[in-house]
Nucleic acid binder design. Structure first.
Length: 266
DNA sequence: AAAGGCGCCAACCGCAGTGTC
DNA sequence: TGACACTGCGGTTGGCGCCTT
């Protein structure tokens, strides 16, 4: 599965990471943080280049890294965001907590790309139906009172999470573009709730994370100008993605609602 | 049972953007 | 302001494991 370990001409180790190396890197970063990737391997006692350490940490060793078993919401988000952002894997990853850009990229090439290529119209149709539904829903919402708590997205999300399992799983079939059922996914009420909470969290994180006083995170993910309240090219780049991510969040909410009402989509 | 092909994923590589001197 | 260093991103590759023949 992984490349056999070997040493390059500079004496740097390449290829698969050993458990011992993982432990060294993990314990060093947990203790001291990653202040300088280039220098880090020397201090951590690793014969690796900084890049390799960084990649290993981000894609594998970070405590919050989620592995395998993509939920259908995650897949939907990836498909939707990829349609709007293209191969901006880091942007897509920003809206999927615990998933690395590399992981998402691999999942796209291994699974989702084939599905969308096999039946692109099915995806497009679904997108359009969601947009149409969103439009109707917006109009309906405007007719109701603004003070109603039940109109808040979080309330609706919680409502939809109370759905019986059968209803939820059957209505996700459009994601399976070759008409084969999605395998390995057990859509449960708990999953639904957890995923939606995750999505809410992710959207919330998108706004709040730049201001978290975790110097590691700020140093590596956001330009200082953001924390300073200034403006930069990088900020505009982030802003560019916000709309798409927000739209994708709405799409996910939409099909949760659709699942709630079996008469909306057939 | 063995061989070959394919899928998947960890890891590498090169380039671009940003920061620092 | 230009050169250099560092970091992050996206494309690509190597190779293990599973599946098919």
């Amino acid at each position: 599965m992984v490349r056999a370990p070997f040493y390059d001409k500079n004496g740097l180790k390449k290829g698969a990471w050993s458990v011992e190396e993982d432990n060294k890197l993990r314990s060093y970063i947990q203790r001291f943080g990653h202040w300088n990737w280039r220098e880090l391997p020397k201090f951590a006692g690793l014969s690796r280049c900084g890049k390799s350490c960084r990649l290993r940490w981000l894609n594998y060793l970070q405590p919050n890294v989620k592995r395998g078993n993509y939920t259908e919401e995650e897949e939907f988000m990836i498909i939707k965001l990829h349609e709007e952002l293209g191969n901006k894997w880091s942007m897509i990853a920003a809206s999927l907590p615990g998933r690395s850009d590399n992981d998402i990229k691999n999942h796209w090439h291994a699974h989702l790309k084939k599905r969308t290529m096999k039946n692109p119209t099915a995806l497009k149709m679904k997108m359009l139906s969601n947009e149409a539904y969103q439009h109707d829903a917006d109009i309906a919402r405007k007719t109701e009172t603004d003070s109603s708590v039940s109109n808040s997205p979080s309330f609706q999300i919680q409502e939809s999470s109370q759905l019986p399992q059968e209803t939820s799983s059957s209505d996700f079939s459009y994601l399976s573009f070759d008409n084969a059922p999605l395998s390995g996914i057990n859509w449960t009420t708990e999953d639904s709730l957890a995923t939606l909470e995750t999505l809410e969290q992710s959207f919330s994180d998108f706004w709040t994370e730049p201001f978290i006083l975790d110097n590691t995170y700020v140093q590596n993910n956001y330009p200082e100008s953001l924390a300073d309240g200034g403006f930069s090219a990088s900020q505009s780049c982030y802003n560019e993605g916000i709309d798409s991510i927000y739209e994708a969040m709405q799409e996910v909410e939409n099909y949760q609602r659709i699942n709630e009402d079996p008469y909306l989509v057939n």
